[in-house]
Design a protein around this nucleic acid. Structure first.
Length: 113
DNA sequence: GCTTTGACGTATG
DNA sequence: TCATACGCCAAAG
């Protein structure tokens, strides 16, 4: 695993519970602006057993990236709702659950920057 | 090596 | 909100 992967994993792991982030935001956070696809590809390769909140990563539109109705899609919806994140038609309102949304959570929850 | 593909993003109409 | 176009780049063939 290279440094880019490690930073992407770190960025994803830094998303607070009950919050979601976009692929682009993760890439930027990992120091790889414009490499949103790299984040998606990496998650596609990530084994299910990986201890990572992959389900908190959505498209910039708030849409779940995986095919509607697929196994991953339903699993992601389930995990999100388990954290009180609202999922309607495969989509999450970023205005409320995004990192800079209305909820009174601390941003990123990571004090190291 | 070249082409295709893809858990994406932004701009534009 | 939907569609189209273009940028991006690592893997797979």
């Amino acid at each position: 695993m290279n440094d880019g992967h490690a930073r992407i994993y770190a960025a994803i792991a830094a998303i607070p519970a009950g919050r979601v982030a976009s692929y682009g935001a993760i890439a930027a956070r990992a120091g790889l602006p414009g490499r949103a696809r790299l984040v998606g590809r990496l998650l596609g390769e990530t084994p299910d057993g990986m201890r990572l909140p992959w389900y908190r990563v959505l498209r910039a539109s708030g849409q779940i990236a995986m095919a509607p109705g697929s196994r991953g899609f339903r699993e992601q919806s389930r995990l999100l709702r388990a954290e009180w994140i609202e999922v309607k038609n495969g989509r999450v309102p970023l205005s409320r659950f995004g990192l800079d949304g209305d909820l009174d959570h601390a941003l990123w929850g990571m004090p190291d920057d």
